[in-house]
């Protein structure tokens, strides 16, 4: 079980927005097959009567008053940007792409 094809990996890589070479896809497919075979063990004990735990410490939503506090200046917010245009992040075209 847990066989994973090269096409499966290519699909996952697309979903993850990671470009991969043919060699990377082949390598990843064989590695993932082995890893999935090992981690699939969780299914042996995960019966219907067990509730899932997403978080070890029980937590409730934490609220606070909506009060304005000091935060980063526009200059600080933009300080790590790969490209800027005035007080804005400059990004590549996001609409009208081929796909």
């Amino acid at each position: 079980m847990a066989a994973i094809s090269r096409d499966d990996v290519a699909h996952l890589a697309r979903l993850s927005r990671i470009e991969m070479s043919d060699a990377e896809l082949d390598h990843m497919a064989s590695e993932l097959g082995v890893i999935l075979g090992a981690v699939a063990r969780v299914q042996e004990v995960a019966t219907d009567d067990i509730p899932p735990t997403s978080h070890a410490i029980p937590l409730h939503n934490v609220f606070r008053e909506d009060v304005v506090k000091p935060s980063l200046t526009p200059e600080e917010s933009l300080s790590g940007a790969p490209a800027t245009d005035g007080p804005r992040f400059k990004v590549p075209q996001i609409l009208g792409e081929a796909e």
Binding site: A46, I50, P52
Partner: peptide, 12 residues
Amino acid sequence: AYYGSAQKVRTL
């Protein structure tokens, strides 16, 4: 099968 089962194991 994967993430859901893993969370149950976390409970165990």
